[in-house]
Design a protein around this nucleic acid. Structure first.
Lengths: 338, 338
DNA sequence: CTGAAAGCGCTTACAG
DNA sequence: CTGAAAGCGCTTACAG
C-alpha cells in the first residue's frame, strides 16, 4: 500500500494524507483521525527512499567501525551500538554501520557525498583526531563519543575519565598505598590520556612521586593486562595497588597476581574501569572488584539523541556533555600490607 | 554534483552517463572511458535514495539486534558485525542495524514494509525459531547465521557445532576421562542443542553414561560459568573434565576450579569454544586452553556474501553451508588423575 | 482546510 | 550506440 492507493481509498488527495500523517497543523481534526486510522488499518508505511529523496534528509545516522579502533579496542561496542540503535528506532531513524577497511577518511567522504546519513557518530577519538576537522570541512554533522583536543566547538558526550581515575587513585592513596600502578590503553586515545592525568594529579596532590615505570599502556586485552602487570611486579619496588582501564586487562592483572603469589584484596589492591559488559561483571569476581563505572549502553542512547538534534541542525557547541563516573567500592581495595 | 550536472558537463544524456557508470554493455568504449574519468574527477556518487527509488532495491542489508538475544548472548557480535560490514562495503551495500525493543517480529515487519533493506541477517536462531517462518511469509529474503529445525529450505551459514563438541568430548574420553561436564548455553538455541548432542553422542559411542546432572545450561557469562562449575564440583562424583560453550563461561569455570583447589591442566581438564575474540585469547591464559575454534569474523564476511546473493534473488535452498570447526589442542587437557 | 502539480535524482523501457 | 521521456513514491510551495 502506497500513498496514492491510500489516498484514493480515502477519497482525499495525496497532499492531505501526507500532511495528516506528518502531523501538519492545517489538517482538520476529523480528517486527520480518518487518515491515521486508515493508515493504521492498512499498515501503511511511507517508502523511506522516496521520503529521503523528497526531503533531502536521509533519516539515518552513521557509525564507522574502524578495524584498528573499535573492534580491537572495544568488545563492548555492541552494547554501545545497541543503545544507539534502540533510541534511533524510537524516532524512526536508521543506523548505518560502515566498515572503514583501513581508509577511514575515505569512508567519511563517501558517506558525505552519497548523503546516506544525516549525521555521523565518532567513537573513541584520539587526542588529535583528524576526523573531527575532516567532518567539519565536509560539512557533515557529527557527534563524538569521547573528546579530542581541539579549540573548535563540536557536539560530544564523554565521561569524566580524569575525575574517575583521580578519585580511584585518591581512594588507594587514602588507604595508604604509595606505589600505584596504572595499566592503561595507549594515551593517544583521549580517554586514556585523561585517565593518566587523573592518576598523575592525584599522586601529585598527595605528594607521591609520579614514577614513569608505574605507568603502562597497550591494547586492553587480557593478555596485555597480564604482561603489563607482570612487568610491574618485576620492578625492584613493585606497586601495591593497580588501576586498570578495562575489565579485560583487569582479568589479566588478576592472573598475573596469582602467578606471582599475590592475593587481590589482600597483598594487592585493584580498581578497574567497568563499562557494564554483561558477560563479565566485576561484582561477581573473586574478590568483587572496586570499579569506576559508567554504562556504555546509556551513552549509546544519549549519543543517538544528540545525533538526532545535530542532524536537525542544532548548534554543535551547545550539545556537549561530560558525565560523572561512579566509584563503586568493593572487596578488591584494602590497605597495603606493611 | 548530480547526474544531470555531470551529463551536461559531458555533453551527453543522463541515460548514457547512467548506463556507462553502471557498466551496461551497449555503451561505446570511448564514451564509457570519458564518463568514468569525469565521474572520478568530480567524485560523482549517485544519490542512494534516488537510485533505490528508481530500482526498487534498497542497496542495504539489515541486522536486528535483539536485546534478549545477541546483546547478552554475544559480546562478540561486534566482530561478526564488522565482518558483515567490511564485505558489504566492498559491494557498496549499506548495513542497517535495528534494535528490536522487545518486539522482534514487529521490527522485521517494519523492515519488510518500508523496503529499506533487500535482505536480512538472522543471528543465533533457536531450535524452533519463529522468525524464519515469519520472514518467509513476509517475502523478505534472509540468511541465517546458524540453523533452525525446519523442513523448509532457507539460506544459512553455520559451523558444525555437533561435530566440534563430539570431537572435543572424544578427545577427553581418549585421555581417559569418564565424567565430562558440559557448561552450555540454553539448548533452546540451536548451536547449544547441537553441542549438547555432540557431547551426548560421543559419550554414548564409548559406552559412557550420559548423566543429566553433568549437563548445565545458562547464559554464557563469567558468573554463570562459575556457578555451573561450582554446581558440578559439588556433585558426589564431580567431573574430571569440562566443556565450555564460550570463553566467558570458561573463565568462570577456571575461577571455580581455583576456588575449590583444582588446577586446570592437572586435576581438571577444560575445553572451551573460542570465537576468536581479540580481548581474550585462550592460548595466552594459564594454562593455554584447548579449544574448538571458528572465527566469527570470517562468518560475518561470508554471511554478507550470501545475503548479497539472496538479495539478488538467488535460490535460498542452494545457499547453505556448514563449516567444520578446528579442535586446537593446548595445555588444559590432560589425562585424569587416578 | 484541501488539492493539483512540480520536483527530489536516479533508472529503464521504448524509439531511433 | 544514444536520447527523450516516463516513472519510482514521496513532500511541499503555490493557489484557492
Amino acid at each position: 500500500m502506497n500513498l496514492k492507493e491510500l489516498s484514493e481509498h480515502l477519497g482525499l488527495s495525496q497532499t492531505t494524507v501526507s500532511r495528516a500523517l506528518n502531523g501538519f497543523p492545517e489538517v482538520g481534526e476529523v480528517t486527520r483521525k480518518r487518515v491515521v486510522e486508515a493508515a493504521e488499518q492498512f499498515q501503511y508505511r511511507p517508502n523511506s527512499s522516496a521520503r529521503k529523496l523528497a526531503t533531502g534528509r536521509a533519516g539515518a545516522i552513521g557509525i564507522v567501525i574502524s578495524s584498528e579502533r573499535n573492534l580491537l579496542l572495544d568488545p563492548i561496542f555492541t552494547d554501545f551500538l545497541a543503545g544507539v540503535a534502540s533510541r534511533s528506532a524510537q524516532v524512526d531513524t536508521d543506523v548505518l554501520v560502515s566498515s572503514s577497511l583501513g581508509d577511514e577518511a575515505g569512508t567519511y567522504r563517501r558517506l558525505a557525498r552519497v548523503r546516506s546519513v544525516d549525521a555521523v557518530v565518532l567513537s573513541t577519538p584520539t587526542v588529535d583526531d583528524s576526523r573531527i576537522a575532516l567532518l567539519q570541512r565536509l560539512g557533515m554533522p557529527f557527534v563524538v563519543h569521547g573528546r579530542s583536543l581541539t579549540s573548535l566547538p563540536y557536539a560530544h558526550l564523554d565521561i569524566d575519565n580524569e575525575a574517575a581515575f583521580f578519585q580511584a587513585t585518591s581512594l588507594l592513596g587514602d588507604l595508604g598505598h604509595r606505589r600505584i600502578g596504572l595499566i592503561n590503553e595507549s594515551v593517544n586515545f583521549t580517554f586514556a590520556m585523561h585517565r593518566s592525568r587523573g592518576w598523575r594529579h592525584a599522586l601529585a596532590e598527595r605528594g607521591l612521586p609520579v614514577l614513569p615505570e608505574l605507568e603502562c599502556s597497550s591494547r586492553m586485552t587480557e593478555e596485555n593486562g597480564y604482561r603489563m602487570a607482570r612487568g610491574l611486579f618485576d620492578l625492584a619496588e613493585p606497586p601495591t595497588a593497580l588501576l586498570c582501564s578495562s575489565i579485560f586487562s583487569a582479568l589479566g592483572a588478576m592472573r598475573a597476581a596469582r602467578d606471582t603469589g599475590r592475593v587481590v584484596g589482600k597483598d594487592l589492591s585493584l580498581i578497574a574501569h567497568d563499562d557494564g559488559l554483561a558477560a563479565i561483571r566485576p561484582e561477581t569476581l573473586t574478590p568483587p572488584l572496586t570499579t569506576t563505572f559508567s554504562s556504555i549502553h546509556a551513552a549509546g542512547i544519549r549519543i543517538a539523541e544528540i545525533g538526532q538534534a545535530i542532524a536537525k541542525g542544532a548548534d554543535p557547541g551547545t550539545l556537549t556533555e561530560v558525565w560523572p563516573v561512579d566509584l563503586v567500592f568493593r572487596g578488591s581495595t584494602v590497605p597495603p600490607i606493611s
